[in-house]
Simulated assay, not measured.
Amino acid sequence: MSRMRTAYRSFRNYRIHRMAERTLAAMDDALLKDIGISRSEIGLVVRGLQRGQEDKAGEP
């Protein structure tokens, strides 16, 4: 049962992150600037990383 729960949580988190990425990507550049991020930082923001940090794979 634990594997099913883990798989479900993983899938749910993926869907939440994709929805957040799509929502931010749909915003215009001026609105993104107002909230303090650039278009190139959307993926980092969604994953919760700040500028200059690296994820587990070693990629910024």
Rank of each mutant, 00 (worst) to 15 (best):
T6G: 00
A30E: 15
Y14L: 06
R39K: 10
R51C: 03
A30L: 09
L24N: 02
A25E: 15
T6C: 01
R47H: 14
R5S: 07
A25V: 04
I16V: 15
T23S: 10
Q53G: 01
R51M: 00
Q50V: 14
M27A: 05
R12H: 10
L44D: 13
A57Q: 12
S40T: 08
A30S: 06
M4P: 00
A25F: 10
H17C: 08
M27S: 02
R3F: 10
R9D: 03
E41N: 08
R39W: 01
A7C: 01
F11R: 13
V46T: 06
L49Y: 15
G52D: 11
M4S: 09
P60M: 02
N13A: 09
R3S: 10
E21F: 02
K56T: 05
L24D: 02
I42T: 05
I42D: 06
A7Y: 04
E59H: 09
D28H: 11
S40L: 05
P60A: 09
T6Q: 11
P60W: 07
M19L: 03
H17S: 12
G52P: 13
S2A: 13
A20R: 13
G43P: 07
V46F: 05
L24C: 04
G52R: 08
P60S: 05
R18M: 12
H17D: 13
M27I: 00
G43H: 04
S10Y: 07
R47E: 12
A26V: 00
R22G: 09
S10H: 08
M4K: 14
K33S: 14
N13R: 15
R18W: 09
I42A: 10
R5A: 15
D34M: 07
D29L: 11
S38V: 03
L49K: 13
P60G: 03
D29S: 15
K56H: 11
D55V: 01
R51A: 10
N13P: 00
V46I: 03
E21Q: 11
R18C: 14
Q53I: 01
L44H: 09
I42R: 06
E21L: 05
M1D: 02
G36E: 08
R47S: 08
M4E: 14
M4W: 06
A57F: 12
R15A: 12
R9M: 05
D28A: 05
R9A: 02
Q53A: 09
R39M: 03
N13D: 15
G52L: 07
S38G: 14
D29H: 07
T23G: 03
D29Y: 10
